[in-house]
Amino acid sequence: MRSVVLTKGVPDFSEGAVSFNEEGHLERGKTPTVMNPNDRFALEAALQTRVRHGGHVSAMSMGPPGYASVLEEAMADIYADDLYLLSDRELAASDTWATAITLCSAIEKYEREVAPVDLVFAGFKTADGETGQTGPQTCWGLEWPIVTHVLALDIDPDEGRLRAKRLVEGDVDEIETVEAPLPCVVVADPEFAPTYRKASHRLEHKRLRAETEARGEEYEDHLTTWDHVDLNLDSEYIGLDGSPTIVSSVDPIPKAPAEREATMVDPDDGEAMESVFEELTAFAGGD
């Protein structure tokens, strides 16, 4: 099984890391870039496939050269064999459409020059754009089937098919089992949980971890960078020029007033506690 996992760097929105300016706009320069949290599930799905069936996992990302660190994270976390970064000034400011065209071209190049791909894994929307479009649009370009919201994955390499459990959200959440031929695009749901119920799977998992640790810091030796020329892409189909989406304005979400008044009350001070109860009585109605 050969898999390509698509991953993206996003601003680290976790508290303490993220930085906003006075207007409430994100300061990209001051906010570190991390792997999109949802991509972890796509990576886990790729790893599970690799552990169970052997083969090869490549991690691919489009973004500035700094995104190599995101790919490094992918290698450390799920023992990716090699890394592909699609990076070039012409690719800057791409929307999901232009990104999908780029990714699609890269996967086609990979199939031509490296090896045919059985599975492409993508995460369920990014933490910054939140569109959930890039994976499906890439799939449209590849003209492959796609299975989204995948919770569990089972592959039959001999038959060249996959069977997946997918979450169907509605009034009642349902889990549906679908089958699809390979090659296929799989979008892992954030509830995707890899399962390793065989000792041989766990031993293989452990072997891969040790092997990756041995590779250590030399992730750059496993990194290939392609620009738009390598991908044979005309600059009018990519980057800002190739992006039909125009974000007209961004309105900050009003923040709760930061200034609050606090009064310290000694819990042993009966009189003071009495006044606390009086203050709170007004809110005690429940309506």
Binding site: D156, R161, E179, A199
Partner: peptide, 18 residues
Amino acid sequence: MAMRRTDGGAEEGYEHYE
């Protein structure tokens, strides 16, 4: 489609070590 389980299910028999 009849599918063989590949997740270590009983249909494939038990894993064996010496």
